[in-house]
Each structure stands twice: as C-alpha cells, then as structure tokens.
Design a binder for these strands. Structure first.
Length: 234
DNA sequence: TTCCCGTTTC
DNA sequence: GAAACGGGAA
C-alpha cells in the first residue's frame, strides 16, 4: 500500500508576531505606496481589468492600456456587447491575448447571468474564465473589501522569506502553506485587509524584490528569517 | 504535474 | 538564443 509522507506539523504563527508584522507593514505602506488608478476604485470590473493586465505586464506599461481600455469599454455591459475583434484591438501590444478573450467571455457570461454582477466570493469568482485563486482573492479583497487572502509571486516571495525560508514555494504543499500563512496573517476586518493585501504586494514589488532585495530599508527586517542571507552575508 | 504564452533577462 | 517569468488551465 502506498504510504504518504507524514504531513509536516506547523506551529501556528504566534499572534504577537503576526500583529507586529501587520503593524509594520501597514505603517510602511502608508508612507511608500504608489498612486495607482486601480487603487482609487472599488468597481469590480475595473479591478478585474487591472488584475488581468497586471498578470503579465509591469505597472508602467499597463497604465496606458488600462486607461484606454476603460475608455473604450467603461463597464461590463459595453465589453460584453463588443465584437471580439474590437476587444483584441484594445489589448493589442499587451500580449497574452488569451487573457483578453477570457475577459470578454467573462463579461458575456456575467452579464447574462441572473444577478448580472461580478461575484464577491472567491469560490464563485474562481469559476469564471481566466480567474484563478490569486485573481479571485484580489477581486474579493480589492473590489468588495472582503477579508480574503491572496498569494501572487510577490506575496509568495515575501511570506516565504520572512516566515518559511525552508519551504519550496514552487511545490504544491509549499504553495498551500503560503496560502495558509497568508490567511493567518489577515487583519480582523475586510477594510483593513484591503490595505494589508495591497501592502504585501507593494512590499514584494518595491523592497522584497526577486533579484536584489532592499533589506536595509525593509519594515519587517527585524522579524525576517532571511535577512542575513541577503545583507552582505554568504 | 506539465503546458501555455509574449516579454524580459541571462 | 535559451531560459525564466507568472498566472491559469489541462
């Protein structure tokens, strides 16, 4: 009989450590966050468009496309009614055109559904074309201010380095553990969770970068299990 | 798990 | 010119 590996035992994150992490992260975000257009809206459609665009392109290049796309298709209905060719044109230059097709499909799907609105629950969101675990969490949190976790590569890198350097973040179990960590770290309310999630991603993008992390200016370096590895160290 | 896709990095 | 990237899907 096939024997499965014993599940690793994980001590839950001490409440005090989680709280300290949230507090430091929050303070840092208030001072250092960038002004981005999708951070001033709670329109699920606009959040969705931004998330899909950002999946494969850096912020600086998305900005222009985002603005133009929303001018042509200001809401789900206008997008749903559009010809496929027009949607692809608006996406032209961004690459990964399957995302544009998925977004169009999603718009038609949702507008013809009974409610006609983009769902707010991660499980329902994930059933939509082109929406996986990350995007589902992002829309729930950033559009509906739900108390939902999200893990993209930025967040995965931060949590991996700070709390679980021994983990293989690429493996299935490793990724599941990171989602678990992300959940344990969530603030109490959905409103604060919005900021918390934005801050996690911003830290990963601006400080805890993949190549040369700027540990010296990191707000959570005191509790990071990987600082030594990156500052001067071996 | 492996594949996919256009861009970026090595 | 290969390999990595980063999400989703098969």
């Amino acid at each position: 009989m096939a024997r499965s590996k014993p599940a690793p035992i994980h001590i839950p994150l001490p409440a005090e450590e989680a709280a300290a992490f949230r507090r430091r992260l929050h303070r840092w975000y208030k001072q250092h966050s960038r002004d981005l257009p999708w951070r001033t809206t709670r329109d699920p459609y606009r959040i969705l468009v931004s998330e899909l665009m950002l999946q494969q392109t850096q912020v600086s290049r998305v900005l222009d496309f985002y603005r133009r796309f929303l001018e042509r298709f200001p809401d789900l209905e206008s997008l749903a009614k559009a010809r496929p060719q027009r949607v692809l044109e608006a996406w032209e230059g961004l690459g990964y055109y399957a995302r544009a097709r998925n977004l169009h499909k999603l718009a038609k799907h949702v507008t013809s559904s009974p409610s006609g609105i983009i769902p707010s629950e991660p499980v329902e969101l994930q059933a939509l074309p082109g929406v996986g675990a990350y995007t589902a969490g992002a829309v729930a949190s950033f559009a509906y201010e739900k108390r939902a976790a999200l893990v993209d590569t930025n967040v995965a890198r931060v949590l991996h380095r700070v709390f679980a350097p021994e983990l293989n973040p690429k493996s299935g179990p490793g990724l599941r553990r990171l989602w678990q960590l992300a959940n344990e770290l969530l603030p109490r309310t959905g409103k604060v969770t919005w900021t918390h999630n934005q801050a996690l991603m911003e830290l990963g993008a601006l400080v805890c970068s993949a190549r040369a992390p700027k540990c010296t200016v990191c707000p959570v370096k005191r509790q990071c299990a990987s600082v030594e590895r990156f500052v001067g160290g071996d």
